[in-house]
């Protein structure tokens, strides 16, 4: 019997390459694929997807006990947390300036500068900073961070359709990368990229966050949107060809399957094991969908996902 011949698509487009880190900081490049993820017989995927670990600038109050015990006292200090994340194998860090949220500590530019400086001096990994997702506060703290991180090509987010101009201008002025976040929808993802490009931000300085649905909470919808974004890009659409970042950790640890420890049906099995499975499955599925950067929370998930990449990439 003749060996089966793999069906090979010819693509005209390519995923953009995006570099994070500069000015003495380690650099990482993602994207650059000329085919769908892991379809190696068809084209190139020159850069291995990167693993970011989420760090916050204030101790989380609503995290699962399994996350709290994994990180210990490091949760109390962003510099210490960042260092530990580097030890746990992060390729880059994703720093959420959570303290700036009006319903948290409502901190401002000064605290953001302090937290950012602590993280930047604690590790030499590439870094992404995101605000509390409140427009006014995001603009305030991200502009402050941008100044502290000038020349280090960090990521700044989240740019959303209603609030992108200030962050885009800041990225342009200080040489940073904008994280463009849209609700899970392909047309809106493209639209925000057009708007960002229209104000003058280079398409090579945009990282798309298509919004993640966790396992059981829209994962298949996210998968489909990401897949269609990749297909459009490979067919030559330059406004969907930015690399993608997915907050797999945040989304999976929000769900009751990860959080619940009381009155859990016996059939659900061991609580910690189930929580880790939730983050693992969400993360690895998103790799297959085309994630270039995964943001994770539990150190064990980092190990598992990296092992999966070792085998498949």
């Amino acid at each position: 019997m003749a060996p089966l011949e793999a069906p090979v698509e010819k693509w005209t487009g390519k995923i953009r390459e995006l570099k994070l880190g500069s000015g003495g900081r380690k650099t990482i490049t993602v994207g650059g694929g000329t085919t769908l993820p892991f379809v190696k017989f068809e084209g190139a995927q020159p850069h291995r997807p990167a693993i970011a670990i989420e760090v916050q600038d204030k101790e989380p109050t609503d995290w699962s006990e399994f996350l709290v015990s994994a990180w210990g006292d490091a949760l109390k200090n962003p510099g210490a947390w960042a260092k530990k994340a580097a030890e746990f194998g992060a390729d880059l860090l994703y720093i959420r300036l959570a303290s700036a949220h009006p319903e948290a500590s409502n901190t401002g530019a000064a605290q953001a500068k302090k937290s950012a400086s602590e993280v930047l001096s604690a590790v030499d990994l590439p870094v992404i900073f995101v605000g509390p997702d409140v427009a006014e506060k995001d603009n305030e703290v991200l502009v402050a961070v941008s100044d502290v991180a000038k020349g280090q090509r960090v990521g700044l987010g989240n740019c959303v359709e209603k609030n992108y101009k200030t962050i885009a201008a800041t990225c342009m002025a200080d040489g940073h990368v904008a994280i463009a976040k849209t609700p899970i929808e392909i047309n809106l993802a493209k639209q925000l990229n057009i708007l960002l490009s229209d104000v003058g931000l280079s398409p090579d300085s945009i990282l798309m966050d298509p919004t993640t649905g966790a396992l059981g909470y829209g994962l298949e919808y996210t998968y489909s949107v990401m897949e269609r974004l990749r297909l459009a890009a490979l067919m030559g659409d330059g406004m969907t060809s930015m690399p993608m970042i997915c907050t797999a950790g945040e989304e999976s640890w929000r769900q009751k399957e990860s959080k619940a420890t009381l009155d859990v049906p016996q059939a659900w099995g061991d609580n910690q094991e189930r929580s880790l499975i939730w983050e693992n499955v969400t993360a690895i599925s998103l790799l297959a969908a085309g994630a270039d950067i995964l943001v994770l929370r539990h150190p064990k998930t980092v190990v598992t996902v990296k092992a999966a990449l070792d085998k498949s990439f």
């Binding site: 392909i186 047309n187 809106l188 493209k190 639209q191 990229n193 057009i194 708007l195 229209d198 459009a232 659409d237 406004m239 969907t240």
Partner: peptide, 11 residues
Amino acid sequence: KNLYAHSYLKL
């Protein structure tokens, strides 16, 4: 042939 976005005319 081209993915719809509200600002597709700008491209």
